[in-house]
Design a protein around this nucleic acid. Structure first.
Lengths: 305, 305
DNA sequence: TTCAATCATGAATATTTCTCATGCGAATAC
DNA sequence: GTATTCGCATGAGAAATATTCATGATTGAA
């Protein structure tokens, strides 16, 4: 019997491109997914996808089931949203503060989707740049802040969004580009190019360079393209989320290298006042962000709690 | 986590009108459904239907989920049909023979639905009346016969459709109408009015009156309305499937009484040549009949094997 | 009141699903 | 050519979940 669980697996598989990564997205082991898909294939009596094909390809039956899966999951989400709305009266306000520059890349589409689901929720972006967006919550200048620093604060709850891989961005012929991955130490060898913001706001600096006691020189640029231009012209190296520079990497304008053996992942959270944390539309905002990001962004993975 | 199983339960509940009967339709116990619905209500955090209300009423959340359930199940069925078609090349012929007069009531809508799903399958009704429709299969004059007599025959497979309650139909002021239910013996007290067909073709006669050695006199009429007219004017009593006479009962034109303490249920099967039994479109025809009948007919229940 | 019908509930059981440990094969690095 | 890594499959055992069984409560009808 095909269950919704199977449909979720199928969609995750199509988005992740491999059993192992899909398993991560549905919070199961690769083994579980293997069993699950086998059962599913037994049920419909045929293969759903072509094994050992990179990139992963679905069989015609798999394609068809995938279409059904997307529709079904969408319908179920809509229903649960409606039910939540029914229960909770709905209506509210969502002033969103963002510190992370690259976040606009995914935030805008997510906000569009969310606006369609909750037309009665008034949404705004809190303009201007803020060194500590979470503080805006307490001053009641924002209702939700995107942050990568979930340190416990009184009255603030953190809803996990996802993790994004940060890669070192180098000129194609940069000496470090010869390495399979960079280490913290490598960042002392060249200028680090970042957005203009306090050091504590960069996960790489806060969580890697500082703890390791690495000295580095920093230079800033406002826009992603400007940073990339500097990198390409050998003025330094940067560390950016892969999803934001994917097209440049694909075109070979610059190259990306993992940071550390396992890669370096930065976590993103939606910080909200505790009072709002239970509101259905707030929970659904986080869910919408996760859904849209996993559907469209590369180099990201789930973030637990 | 809401699963498709839950959606099926919900739809069955809406169609059956009670937990107990819904349980029968999904081949589970009432207890299982009770647990299942409780889990579901815990999940969405609110009631899905109003207990102790006859007829059963859904809560707004229940209504919404029910809508989603219908859509989702339809989508899943369509997907599985498409996949079956993909696998099996499709195309075929379905000449349908029917002995049971009242069957046209549900057969036509079911055929319409089926035609939409399998436009490439050529469907026909085998015209004329046949004392032994199953014999037509062997003579290759039909591909599928609706019958209530699944006795094993070489080369013939029976696909269970459903059981339908046969009630005794009486004039409103008939003496027997005072009884809560009729017994076999009661049928010797008045003329039995049937469609014109051999005795063996009536389940009541074949399975109840004959085995009990009850003598009875019989009179025939071609059409259901004619039979009812005779009943209403006290010329005799009839035994008909409740779904076929529901509107007359509701209007009080005649009354229906169960036959036997538990009621008497006649089983209906689709008989097909064994060679066809595995064809996807044949299996789906049976499934379509079941689905449409359970969705629209009253006084019917599932038939196992 | 008694009977029959419907639903809820806790405990026991059955079934399903998942994880763990491991193996295999292909691609890549050394 | 041998090691290493990656992705997937598989069997067995563990964990989680679903179902049944036995029973009780409640309600409406006779």
């Amino acid at each position: 019997m095909i269950e919704i669980r199977h449909l979720k697996t199928l969609v995750a598989l199509s988005e992740a491109g491999s059993l192992t990564q899909a398993a991560e997205r549905v919070f199961l082991t690769q083994s579980a997914l293997s069993h699950q898909l086998k059962a599913l294939e037994d049920d419909i009596g045929g293969a759903l996808f072509v094994r050992k094909s990179a990139p992963l390809r679905f069989s015609p039956a798999g394609e068809r089931l995938l279409i059904a899966a997307r529709r079904v999951l969408e319908e179920m989400e809509a229903a649960q949203r409606d039910i939540a709305r029914l229960a909770a009266g709905a209506a509210g306000r969502l002033r969103i503060a963002v510190e992370c520059h690259s976040c606009f890349d995914w935030l805008m589409p997510a906000m569009d989707t969310f606006r369609g689901h909750w037309p009665e929720v008034e949404m705004d972006l809190v303009s201007g740049f803020h060194a500590d967006p979470v503080a805006l919550l307490k001053r009641d200048e924002a209702d939700l802040a995107i942050t990568s620093d979930p340190r416990a604060r009184r009255g603030v709850a953190y809803l996990p969004l996802f993790q994004t891989e940060m890669q070192a961005i180098l000129a194609r012929d940069h000496p470090l580009a010869a390495k399979a991955y960079l280490t913290a130490r490598d960042f002392s060898r060249d200028v680090l190019i970042t957005y203009p913001a306090p050091e504590e706001m960069f996960d790489l600096i806060r969580l890697v360079l500082k703890p390791a006691g690495i000295a580095f020189t920093r230079r800033t640029a406002e826009l992603t393209v400007a940073i990339l231009q500097l990198v390409a012209s050998r003025r330094g190296i940067a560390a950016l989320p892969v999803f934001g520079v994917e097209s440049y990497l694909a075109r070979g304008y610059v190259v990306g290298r993992p940071i550390g053996r396992q890669g370096f992942y930065s976590s993103l959270y939606a910080a909200v006042p505790e009072a709002l944390a239970d509101a259905a539309y707030v929970a659904d905002f986080a869910a919408t962000v996760r859904r849209t990001c996993f559907a469209h962004l590369s180099g990201i993975r789930p973030l637990v709690a």
